[in-house]
């Protein structure tokens, strides 16, 4: 036994947490735990994960049997650059194990990766604009959706750390961006507000989440799949409530 398992196990957990937090699948996490632990001399590896919990038990032979678990935040973002770097790290390690210090240093370097703000701004604007036109809006709706995509992004930055649950977060962001968009109906601009709304909705609606949830169900990750499926449905309901409330406020003449 070259390295101290007491040092290795928390490292594996940090790796796993980073993988989930950057959008890695539960199945990928379990497989990677196997690779990592085997690379460091694990004889038998039992890894289990759901979207908010990682469990790992490794039998290191002479080094003894070690177990560790980690609760991870439920709100997993997606960061493809981190995901790629983490994947590369696990490949490096399974070819030739790094020392725990090197491994830690690599993880720290990856955690420094952040999306360039210009990339985020351009991305959300482009996605919202493209979908407004994809669903039948014109150039005007596309441009307005581009703008409100940015508004939704700013609202996300502000509210995401301040809200306890995803549901209340989606409700508030939908309500506020909806109020902004339906206010356009009061201006002389010939805007189809619904087209702008659908563009912005595509940014927030858990469409990817519901698709991957059903995929998880199909491949047998039933717990993760069902919880993500319910989260997506409830999240979409919260958004619908937010946008409908903003529409009613305008249509009913309250505002």
């Amino acid at each position: 036994m070259q390295y101290d398992p007491k040092e290795l196990m928390p490292l594996f957990m940090d790796y796993g947490e980073a993988l989930l937090a950057s959008g890695g699948e539960v199945r990928r996490l379990e497989d990677t735990m196997d690779y990592l632990a085997e690379a460091y001399g694990g004889i038998r590896v039992d890894a289990f994960a759901i979207s908010s919990l990682i469990l790992l038990t490794v039998d290191f032979g002479e080094g003894g049997v070690h177990s560790i678990s980690r609760c991870v935040p439920r709100w997993n973002g997606t960061d493809f650059e981190k995901l790629e770097l983490l994947n590369r790290l696990s490949r490096t390690v399974s070819r030739a194990p790094l020392s725990p210090q090197e491994f830690r240093a690599e993880l720290d370097r990856i955690s420094q990766v952040h999306t360039h703000p210009v990339k985020k701004i351009l991305g959300s604007g482009l996605a919202a604009g493209a979908f407004a036109m994809f669903f039948g809006g014109g150039i005007l709706e596309g441009l307005l959706a581009f703008f409100f995509g940015l508004v939704a992004l700013v609202l996300q930055f502000y509210f995401a750390p301040r809200m306890r649950s995803r549901v209340s977060f989606l409700f508030v962001v939908s309500l506020l961006s909806g109020l902004g968009i339906y206010a356009l109906g009061l201006t002389p601009l010939p805007v189809q507000c619904d087209m702008v709304v659908i563009g912005v909705i595509m940014l927030l609606v858990p469409g990817i989440a519901i698709t991957t949830a059903v995929r998880d169900l199909f491949i047998g990750d039933t717990v993760t799949g069902s919880s993500r499926l319910m989260e997506s449905i409830i999240g979409a309901a919260a958004m619908a409530a937010g946008y409908m409330l903003s529409m009613i406020l305008f249509a009913g003449g309250v505002l």
Partner: peptide, 25 residues
Amino acid sequence: TPATLYYITAFIPLIPGSSLYHTME
């Protein structure tokens, strides 16, 4: 690179975002 990067982006036009929204609406 992980296939995740490519399949998530490739499925963006397919994902039932708007119909999921309209369902709940």
